[in-house]
Structure formats: structure tokens, C-alpha cells
Design a protein around this nucleic acid. Structure first.
Length: 239
DNA sequence: AACGGTTGCAACCGCGGAGGG
DNA sequence: CCCCTCCGCGGTTGCAACCGT
């Protein structure tokens, strides 16, 4: 089939948004090739899908990126490069397009060519040929103890885990399935991280974190203290 | 106020991968 | 296998808004 002729392009009108929204409400997401006809829209399927995913779907976060969101973007980008959808999958409420635009307009200029080379080298070293590192068990234990102590005393909770831990887990597992780089277990084995007991999940959660509470999936990441303590330890300590 | 340059975002395009026949 | 269709991704473009002169 040839190129569709006569389909509308450019900015979407409110009427078009309404038609698209009603169509998705009625039929659900997917079958994008059927959407223009179902919705009564003179648009191609790609335009409909893009409009829905980047603008109309309900959980999109608007406005400035938070400092910790930016930090997370930079960290994940260091590891996976321009895999915008993968990065977006780890930042609730932000679309791949948002993140790509933000990177291109705000962040890419801040990364020097030297940084880019170092980043690329580091990425390959980590992903393709990780160096086995051992953790300090005392660090792991002390992390869990500290979390419990703060909860008991009603003091400041132990702050959100180093973002490395969150995205490492996010990168490896999602909804119980293996992530793009394999399973978290495989990762643990790769990095020679010993199994430890979970600490008290409530005690370590930072309620003010941008990452807390947006979705069950994200909660699951946040509330897995063993993993982030392990990984944080891994980042900090060689024994 | 008018103009030209810059910025940031929304949207388009082309390509590669997945899956079905 | 091969072909075809559809989906989703990343790169790129278009344009409105903003800013400085």
C-alpha cells in the first residue's frame, strides 16, 4: 500500500483530541491501524498513537524536571545511551519524547566530548565486561540497622537509596520479568553480591521522593531494601 | 514597535523488529 | 524460510514563543 494521501498533519485540535480520547475509552489502546477510522479522524495511525502516548494518556507529568529526575536520566543515559523509551520506563509520568527533548535541549550540551568517551567506555565495561566486586557485609548490615533505628526513634528516615540501586534493579527486572539486560539474579551473580536479609522496608523509604508512590511497580523498586543496600554498597566499597 | 536569532516542544519520518500467514 | 503488515523507537524537523537589540 502506498503513502496515505490527504491525511491531516501538524498540531492537533481540541476536537481531534476529543475524538481520539473517546475512541481509546471505547476500544482501548492498541490496534492503531484501526484508530483513525474508529475515531473518525483524518490522521495516520502513527500520528494518533503519538498524540495519545505523548499527550493524552492520563498519567503524564508536566512541567519542570525535578533534580532527582534529571540525576536519574543522566545516570541511566550513561549506561544505556539514547534508549529513550528504556529511560522513560524508569521515570514515572515522563514520556520518551519528553526525556529526549529535555536531553537534547538541556543536558547534551553539558556533556563534553571527553565525558562522552568516558561514558561510552564505562557503559561497555559495565554491561559487557563487569568487574567482579565484593561487598562489605558490615556496610550492608549497618545500612539495615540504621534504617530500623531511625524508624524506631521516629527520626528522619534514611534517605532514598542511591539512584544507582533503583535503576539497576529497574534495568534488570520489570513486573517480575527479566529486563533488557537480564534478571536481577543474573546481575547479582555477575557482580558477586552475596544474598542478605531484607531490612525494614518502611524504615528506608523516603516519603518525599519523586519516585515514591506513583505506581505499584515503582513502589516495588523502592521498597526492596536488600537490593539497593547491596548495590549502594557495591558502588562504595571493595573488600 | 519591529525584527532577527534562539529555544523548547510537538509532531513527523524512516527504519528495524516481531509476528502471522 | 520468505513476504507482508503492524508496531514502536530514535532522529529530525517545523513552528510558536521568547528574548535581545
Amino acid at each position: 500500500m502506498g503513502r496515505q494521501l490527504g491525511v491531516r498533519k501538524g498540531a492537533w485540535t481540541q476536537e481531534e483530541d476529543l475524538l481520539l480520547r473517546k475512541c481509546i475509552e471505547k476500544y482501548g489502546e492498541g490496534k492503531w491501524n484501526l484508530v483513525p477510522q474508529r475515531a473518525g479522524l483524518n490522521r495516520c495511525r502513527k500520528s494518533c498513537r503519538l498524540r495519545w502516548l505523548n499527550y493524552l494518556t492520563s498519567n503524564i507529568k508536566r512541567g519542570e524536571f525535578a533534580v532527582d529526575e534529571i540525576d536519574l536520566i543522566i545516570r541511566i543515559h550513561k549506561l544505556v545511551g539514547n534508549r529513550w523509551s528504556l529511560i522513560a520506563g524508569r521515570i514515572p509520568g515522563r514520556t520518551a519524547n519528553d526525556i529526549k527533548n529535555y536531553w537534547n535541549s538541556h543536558l547534551s550540551k553539558k556533556v563534553t566530548s571527553h565525558d562522552k568517551r568516558e561514558t561510552a567506555k564505562a557503559s561497555y565495561a559495565k554491561v559487557l565486561k563487569p568487574q567482579p566486586r565484593r561487598l562489605s557485609k558490615s556496610l550492608i548490615t549497618s545500612g539495615n540497622l540504621e534504617a530500623s533505628r531511625r524508624k524506631e526513634e521516629g527520626g528522619e528516615p534514611l534517605l532514598a537509596p542511591d539512584n544507582d540501586a533503583i535503576w539497576w534493579k529497574g534495568l534488570f527486572e520489570k513486573e517480575g520479568e527479566n529486563g533488557p539486560l537480564g534478571s536481577a539474579d543474573a546481575m547479582r551473580e555477575l557482580l558477586v553480591i552475596p544474598a542478605i536479609d531484607n531490612g525494614d522496608a518502611e524504615g528506608i523509604r523516603d516519603e518525599n521522593s519523586t519516585f515514591a508512590g506513583d505506581s505499584q511497580e515503582w513502589d516495588d523498586l523502592i521498597l526492596d531494601p536488600s537490593l539497593w543496600v547491596q548495590l549502594e554498597g557495591n558502588c562504595l566499597v571493595d573488600t
